[in-house]
């Protein structure tokens, strides 16, 4: 059957990510349905990346939506020689970092407790029984988000995709258009910078 995604009855759920992304990129009949199937499959993963970068549900939801819409609008920028999901996650990472930068430029919002996002407020006012561990996890998460801004774009992309998303380094390399060797070096440098930024947190 030719052009299944366009010409025939479509079982979108049966197609793999790459076929769906191609249908979206092709922009033909059903591009929209292909997009929706991709959203259904990967919204949770996109949200997880967004959450780790922004640290609260509200901002994570905003970043998730923007990332998915950007993937729809800018699908022309995705090259089918690479995998779709790493590309999508990289779009998400970049938007999440932009979001962090904007937040950083509004320091009052971060300092004013009344405006702190839910999770960060929880770190200030622990209420659950498991508070010690929770507070520490939240503190670390908040510190990591701050530290991520220090990384270069490539270091951050490599770190988030490998560390949080578990993408094999070879896939990260394909996505970033560089060699696996240079991806390893970016990862090393990212870890070194994070080590410097966070030494007081984990060495004690």
């Amino acid at each position: 059957m030719v052009g299944r995604s366009v010409l025939e009855e479509k079982d979108w759920a049966a197609l793999d990510d790459q076929d769906l992304a191609l249908a979206l990129k092709r922009g033909g009949l059903g591009a929209r349905a292909a997009f929706e199937e991709l959203v259904r499959r990967h919204q949770g993963r996109v949200y997880a990346v967004a959450y780790r970068l922004t640290g609260n549900r509200e901002d994570a939801l905003d970043v998730t939506q923007e990332a998915l819409l950007k993937a729809y609008r800018k699908i022309d920028a995705w090259r089918p020689t690479g995998q779709f999901v790493p590309w999508l996650l990289r779009v998400t990472t970049n938007l999440g970092i932009d979001h962090l930068r904007k937040r950083k430029r509004r320091p009052r919002e971060r300092l004013d407790e009344a405006h702190l996002p839910e999770t960060e407020r929880a770190a200030v006012e622990p209420t659950s029984l498991d508070t010690g561990r929770q507070v520490r996890a939240l503190e670390i998460a908040a510190r990591i988000r701050t530290a991520l801004v220090v990384l270069s774009e490539k270091q951050r992309a490599v770190f988030v995709l490998r560390h949080y998303e578990g993408l094999p380094l070879a896939d990260v390399a394909t996505e970033m258009g560089c060699t696996v060797g240079s991806v390893k070096v970016h990862l090393f440098r990212a870890l070194k910078k994070l080590q410097k930024e966070l030494a007081d947190l984990y060495e004690n």
Partner: peptide, 24 residues
């Protein structure tokens, strides 16, 4: 040292509790 850092950086994210398809 980097091994300890990596362990300290581990951490999950909450699950998405809604379907974004209708919103998008």
């Amino acid at each position: 040292a980097l091994g300890r850092l990596k362990a300290a950086l581990a951490g999950g994210a909450p699950e998405l509790d809604r379907d974004l398809v209708p919103v998008l």
